[in-house]
Nucleic acid binder design. Structure first.
Lengths: 248, 248
DNA sequence: CGCCCACTTGAACGTGTTCAAACGTCGTGG
DNA sequence: CCACGACGTTTGAACACGTTCAAGTGGGCG
């Protein structure tokens, strides 16, 4: 059977491998995970608040996001997800979804039955640990965003967010000479950072006038990483991008 | 050997039992978890940002909180923890702490070696699932707080927070005729909700004038739950307090 | 060409911050 | 017993950050 070694077909394997040391059996088991691949257009809900899904969604290509609606007109974006991530892994243990999962761009998504994941984890407990760890990093990012939302001014929030997305995309090889794809509108950026679209726009201008980056056409290029990181008080520790030995 | 049935000595067992169905073996194993019990005074750090702990902390009695510092003078409180919770369970898989864990009140804390937890989970995979689930609920609370920090005005944040703490304490039997202990200062409340102490004070007055609750002397009494929940746009779904069947 | 959508700008407004001072309660020590 | 200090709460006033509403710009695409 064909076993690609780079994980180019299955970014999940590449993701996990970048963090933990997989045995050949574990790699094979991951490749053998039964998965239904589906295409979504941009800005489509995949699963919704209140749903009780029986499968998880692996982002294979494109970007996804999670959000909550509050009242009629307010939205808070909770997370962005890049290839190799499983935004709704939590649904394995939290049966009712408490937020929405949607595509940001056109995306290819792999649907994996909970059953298949339970089986996999029962057979390979170390993989269960690796998945658990992924959800813990998710939570670590939530915490850092809470700090931004609660205690940072608009420009710092933007700078911090840009640094984070750059680091994460870089880690999966999606940063090319200082540039990443970041196809979000200013309104979406505002919904992420707890700002109005108007103020997001003005804060962006303020940062742009400092020549820290260019952000247009859905692409972000960072010109001065150090000063941007300083502006955003960015310390990448919370991303936990170091590799680790799995116990057991 | 003595096996208390109510879990009064070990709130961890009571907590897990309120959510999942434990077998007698699993209960015994939980009771047998080796644990070093330690007393802390109020407002003491237990573990700090940057630490690499080799043990987890079970809150047995009292309250704990987690926070991040940003710059010199700003603090964001990330979570409050009540008896039965393990605030730093994540340290099992995220080796370096990205925030601080401290006591809010005087507290009794059980220190459990990671080793002991790995062993327990290897022997009882369903308990691993239960612990994982706890960390997922943690993350669900972070998400809800993000919505508050990003998209709710001060009075709604306060109302929401009060509803949440009431529900959580009620679930472990710590609400007595509409009253809970909530020994936090207005400054701490502000650091939780991303507000200044002054504005927290004024928003509290605004709510108080509506007779929704009394909050003094470290005790919160809710007079009109429905109106308070409405004011805070509180929907308890995100707490995932329903019980569930563990797979495997 | 014309429409849609995202971005941009201006102006008035509002929520929340900051600084400063005062008040009350409680526990300590003289 | 009173004086004192510490701490949390409360108040006022000036200010800053961010919102809202409204209008205008510009590019991309049918």
């Amino acid at each position: 059977m064909h076993r690609p070694t780079e994980g180019e077909q299955n970014p999940l394997v590449r993701k996990l491998e970048s963090i933990v040391d997989l045995t050949p059996e574990e790699r094979d088991a991951l490749f053998d995970l039964p998965m239904m691949v589906r295409e979504f257009r941009a800005h489509q809900d995949i699963v919704r608040d209140g749903d009780r899904p029986s499968q998880c969604c692996l982002v294979i290509e494109g970007f996804a996001l999670r959000y909550k609606l509050v009242g009629e007109d307010r939205r808070q974006i909770l997370a962005f997800h890049i290839p190799g991530e499983i935004p709704d892994l939590q649904s394995l243990y939290l049966k009712t979804l408490d937020h929405n999962l949607a595509t940001l761009t056109q995306a290819r998504v792999g649907l994996i039955q909970h059953r298949a994941l339970y089986d996999l984890m029962a057979r390979y407990p170390r993989l269960a640990g690796a998945f658990w760890r992924e959800t813990l990093i998710d939570a670590a990012i939530f915490r850092e965003w809470m700090v931004g939302l609660g205690r940072r001014r608009a420009p710092a929030r933007i700078a911090h967010f840009f640094c984070e997305m750059f680091r994460r995309l870089e880690a999966i090889g999606m940063a090319k000479n200082g540039t990443i794809k970041l196809p979000i509108t200013q309104e979406e950026l505002g919904d992420t950072l707890g700002l109005s679209a108007v103020h997001t726009n003005r804060s962006l201008q303020e940062l742009r006038s400092q020549d820290l980056f260019t952000f247009e056409g859905g692409r972000l290029t960072i010109h001065d990483w150090d000063r941007l990181a300083e502006e955003g008080e960015f310390d990448p520790l919370y991303l936990h991008q170091d590799s680790m030995k799995l116990p057991e």
